[in-house]
Amino acid sequence: MQDLLFYVFAAVALIAGFLAVANPFSRNPLASALFLAVALVAVSGLFVLLHAFFLGAVQILIYAGAVMVLFLFVIMLLDLREEQKRRARKVAAGLASALALALAALISAAALAGGGPADPPALEGGARALGRALFTDFLLPFEIVAVLLVAAMVGVVWLSRKEAA
């Protein structure tokens, strides 16, 4: 059952991810954004299969629920016709494909060399374990991320302020 669900979620994530960047049926950016949201939800399903419930819930809450909605918001307010007409350049497409293939080869080589992952240790994916880890072992990285977010927020407020008349 777990295996079956893994293949379902993985297939959905891959197909939706592909359709997000190279949709043969439509060049509408909104469709791409929606497929990206589907891919994100499928990835959160994978997290849940790993018993990382917190991560799965937060993935949906933050990425699918907030970030993608902002994407939709921006796409809807932009003029889309330019984007829909634009074609990918051959050189860029070739370079990107080569890089993606190289990455895939690297990951498969690493996976094969390691003989596949051993049985993963029982994960403590709940909020309690995560909170404890964040505020003891990983306090410094946590605080650095907090400072980074505050800096980004200040930047946004500065950029979007109204000019004093």
Binding site: F54, A57, V58, I60, L61, A64, G65, A66, V69, A127
Partner: peptide
Amino acid sequence: ILYTFGIVSL
């Protein structure tokens, strides 16, 4: 509750 908020945000 996080699940609920995730769904509500969709």
